[in-house]
Design a protein around this nucleic acid. Sequence first.
RNA 1: GUCCCAGUAGCUCAGCAGGAUAGAGCAACAGCCUUCUAAGCUGUGGGUCGCAGGUUCGAAUCCUGCCUGGGACGCCA
Length: 560
Amino acid sequence: MEVTNMNVMQELQEKVKAEIKQAVVKAKLAAEAEVPDIILEKPKDKAHGDYATNIAMQLARIAKKPPRQIAEELTAQLDTAKVSIKQVDIAGPGFINFTMNNQYLAELIPAILNEGQDYGTSDSGAGQRIQVEFVSANPTGDLHLGHARGASVGDSLCNILDKAGYKVQREYYINDAGNQIDNLALSIQARYMQALGKDFPMPEDGYHGPDIIQIGETLAEEHGDSLVEKAEQDQLVFFRTYGLQVELDKLAHDLKQFRVPFDHWFSETSLYDENKIVPAIELLREKGYIFEEDGATWFRATAFGDDKDRVLVKQDGSYTYLSPDIAYHKNKLDRGFDKLIDIWGADHHGYIPRMHAAIQALGYNADTLEVQIIQMVNLFENGEKVKMSKRTGKAVTLRELMEEVGIDAMRYFFVMRSADSHLDFDMDLAKSQSNDNPVYYVQYAHARICTMLKQAQEKGIDWCDYDASLLQSEKAVDLLKKLGEFTQVIADAAENRTPHRVTQYVFDLSAQLHSFYNAEKVINQEDLMATKARLALMESVRITIANAATLIGVQVPESM
RNA sequence: GUCCCAGUAGCUCAGCAGGAUAGAGCAACAGCCUUCUAAGCUGUGGGUCGCAGGUUCGAAUCCUGCCUGGGACGCCA
């Protein structure tokens, strides 16, 4: 596939790989078809050069020679000048280490300055159409900590996929049908009655959150006791519709404020209204995966490796959660996505096998649906784990956290760790305006650069005619190399669905900026040419930090 | 009992399509502000990568078993 818009560094790596492969063939170590994919990696130890390959070890079996001998024969055939290689070393058991001619790095700055906000973009996803469904919290209460992590990870992943050349659609599945909505109506009814001073019990599985109490009070204020006169059924329909509207508006508002946009809100009820559920079940029946037993209708999930078969239609004729969910996933697939990603909380992981079974029963490969599990969040305050209770509705909400902690710190903290790791969210650290707080560390790096650029401007330094080849100090070269990794970091994070890599990258880049800042004075009127080159470097770092921060939903200030 | 996630420095975690001497932040200790923001930098100490086997030239990384912590195993959603 033709890859356009390729990063300077990636282009160079591809050239080096091609040259190595050619050398293997030239040295008659292996036939062209036999040569394994050349792996170029960045050695951990700087002393081992810029890139290393283990190809000599991999070829040992094919060429039937010791790795170090293979390395000798191979490197003799390399045209190093052609691909900017300054030095080649053979080390250890047979690694071939390459030290690059740093001149190529000078091309990076004009590329970054030119691309600006688009720096980091690639088409490594080749336009694959991916739909990501995330958050999808029931509209029966406030978003809590777990949803906040899901929202942060989901949104960041979407941003990253988008930047890496995938076509992404973000969707929220609204569970506005089923028992929980009936319970919502009953809960609101109880709170409304209570607000009127009546002794009215909450339903068995009612929602005890403060938001429901508020709804009851609002209704009491606006309608007095006029709603009591309605027939029971009419009352519940009213409470249901009203409650859904209020809860949904609140969810949408909170998520928007949290910088988590959705392209599409999909209503579960629409599956009923548009008669999507019966045909989906019938389709499975035609394929032979449906049977009747004990007065219920079952899906033969065991045919696809699930532990047990699953009920779709209960004895009382109503659907289980799975039925509309199968119809929903069929609907998504009918919309033509190449891949579906569902982001679920860890407590739903047991649901994965049956959903994969359903996908296969519908005639798709299991891996068409990818489920990303977000592990649990523990909240710590004053060094102690904060207990949460769903029953009493006592839980820390997304809204409270936004007010208390701030959006930037939250977004950063929630994608700081790998999603399949449990997360300890330290309120005191997230709130602290100190150097302990990593989000400030990144923001401070950006603000520092802005200050320097501003001062240069005030001093009338126009650096348009910079010469990037003047950047030869160790710290400057390290920064350049780090900048060059950005596009690949995003592509990797997209492919592996690991948004936390971007957080780590922006932290590392910020660390190198701070280190550079302390080692070198950027603006030096005595040496204008070097100053201009450094200013161009600073602007390139600024752009890259800003782009990375944007991907994880963190804003970067111009001053702090 | 079955399944999923985790177990790496005192603490919180990276690293896990096998690679060279296992990293970062915090905490500890020692330094750096008449110089572009010290919310910063520099340095030191700190490890049986849960345990035991196995595969491999090479394992924190792959396989098996076990231990510990968390979660899931509904005709709930």
